[in-house]
Nucleic acid binder design. Structure first.
Lengths: 107, 107
DNA sequence: TTCAATATGTCGTTGCGCGACATGTCGCAT
DNA sequence: ATGCGACATGTCGCGCAACGACATATTGAA
């Protein structure tokens, strides 16, 4: 797994999983919602990112009993959650700095 | 120029220029500072991004009189500033959503 | 006087994002 | 019944951005 900072799509995928375990298609819709329809993940992006996140142990497959065929959920690992917390702190700080810089001078 | 959202390096470059016009090397150091040393732009990234930003009219060359040879500054255009304001709003909102989601459940 | 910091830029590789494509299920309306 | 849209998972190849390596020149300080 590459080092921080995360790219936008990956960040949103992880953020989606931060609330609850989800399967792929559910992530797709959740990201759409969260970003108010601004970010539409393609399946290529999604499954590519999930593969890398699994490999880096940020997420893991989450087995449920009565899950219909071909359907599988993912959830954050402890590592993934920790990293996301760091990433969110970083983001909040960046938002503050950005706000200061851009707010100044003519709006 | 590609559509929003911006990538991290490009965002930081623009943010650096939001405060004041700067030349390339100055952007490099400012981004380093702003991100507390987390993001070290390579010159390849920087000048590639500057070229694209110039092409898309987000920034423009900023001429100063007594500038030593080979040294040139860049500054945000009105378009660039407007786009950055949008981008910052978007970022702030994302930071809020992210905070809610990640804060919940064990820290 | 040489070394680090300042300063600008190119080139090739790598890896990511993304659209297109492929495949299949399920529930509902016609 | 059948056909359609939403649900669901995945692969493949292209284009492009990020990045490290390299190249070069100037300036100020030890």
């Amino acid at each position: 797994m590459k080092e921080l900072p995360l790219t936008e799509p990956v960040f949103l995928i992880l953020l989606s999983l931060a609330g609850q375990p989800r399967h792929g298609y559910s992530i797709l819709k959740d990201v759409d919602d969260m970003s108010r329809g601004r970010v539409k993940l393609s399946t290529g992006t999604l499954y590519g990112a999930l593969r890398r996140l699994l490999a880096g142990r940020w997420i893991e497959r989450f087995k449920e009993d009565d899950r219909p065929r071909g359907r599988q959920a993912y959830r954050l690992t402890a590592l993934g959650r920790r990293n996301m917390q760091l990433e969110v702190s970083r983001l909040k700080r960046l938002a503050l700095v950005a706000n200061l810089r851009v707010a100044r001078k003519e709006s």
